[in-house]
Design a protein around this nucleic acid. Sequence first.
DNA 1: CGTCTTATTGAATTGTCTCAACATGCGTGG
DNA 2: CCACGCATGTTGAGACAATTCAATAAGACG
Lengths: 217, 217
Amino acid sequence: MLLEYAEDDSNLPEGILLRRRPVARGETLFRTGDPFHSVFAVKSGSFKTLLPSQSGQDQIIGFHFPGETMGTAGVAEGIYPCTARALEVSTICEVRMERLEESGQSAEMLQRAIIEMLGKEVSFNNTLMTSLIRQSAEQRIGAFLLNLSQRLQVRGQTGEEFSLSMSRSDMGSYLGLASETVSRVLTRFQKAELIELDKKRVHLLSPERLADVVDEV
Amino acid sequence: MLLEYAEDDSNLPEGILLRRRPVARGETLFRTGDPFHSVFAVKSGSFKTLLPSQSGQDQIIGFHFPGETMGTAGVAEGIYPCTARALEVSTICEVRMERLEESGQSAEMLQRAIIEMLGKEVSFNNTLMTSLIRQSAEQRIGAFLLNLSQRLQVRGQTGEEFSLSMSRSDMGSYLGLASETVSRVLTRFQKAELIELDKKRVHLLSPERLADVVDEV
DNA sequence: CGTCTTATTGAATTGTCTCAACATGCGTGG
DNA sequence: CCACGCATGTTGAGACAATTCAATAAGACG
């Protein structure tokens, strides 16, 4: 539902959906512990979500691309459980939850949508954890690239060539690897002609062989 | 809500809440892909949830103790995303969702409860992932023991001494470690007089020093 | 154009895994 | 109830993948 709003926001009651000015690179949408008020959908650009750590090094817990939502889990506890920050100039669609309920929108439909999003998030996290926990650096990064490709394809992009808008150390934090390892594996993939790499730009030359790398027992 | 039912099921409409005979050790409550029908709350004993893997080695994704729920994420997709299996003789409270909706129960309250459970699960998984991804074997196992202790305390237990009802390799799968490593670390903890270990029984001698191990930068 | 951040590459270190042997516990059937 | 057999747990030695530290290179941004 919210995903559709992100594409075509014309049929949403005024005052609920907020189209804000483009979000600057590095700008924070919400912080861990902030009182929950809205769910955000990415319209263009990309975001990272993270858990701030006392010891300086933030833990990246997710990346968010057009058509995907952020902050949903906050509805349960009334506060945002993570911080969301733009990786590049981006646009978003903000849906104020309390105002949605006020307006004649069916609360039940709204809740169903939230349940669906959360349920998918739980499932995704479980499979993600499974891959992260037992796989090698090459497998993790291969799976990560394929996952990004797939998610971008859903939104009409080719999925063959795209931009790694996050830093190497963000990728590393997310995948549980040192940023140097990310660097090394990417160059290894390039030498094996699995990908083509030009700074932030990636081109998947052979998704099939990449999938083989990931599935190796 | 469901947690309360797990404790005192007297005020639930008949036919919705099912008290089943005790579940045997090793018995499966539901399997990945099964059509969703019920949420389960643990009354006594313990369970593991897992993602079956084609390559034999199942991935453990969670453990469930009295007062905790299982299968909630299935409501979103209509199928159970994981398999739940009893670690010991246990009792459960099964709540049939479709019948709950049929009965006069407010669908909205029910949905709110589900949202709360899912939101907490998302948050928990995020913090769990954070610890698993960057921490050493000692930190993972220390955090795991402390987490178990804390969850048992919530339900009135002392939390100082409890039973590790899962096998070493279940722990290992869950924590991303070889079962041998789990074994080694536990004996190391024992030698350091952080815990006392008698087969499945653990006694946390110094939760504070254990927390220090976990927090070491 | 210079400064600061991010990325790449190298060399050495180390934690965890793998393989293997052995010990212990548990359930089953005699 | 004991004895057997299989599953589970412990411990050791060696291998290796990823980390850390360090130095250089390349971009980003004002």
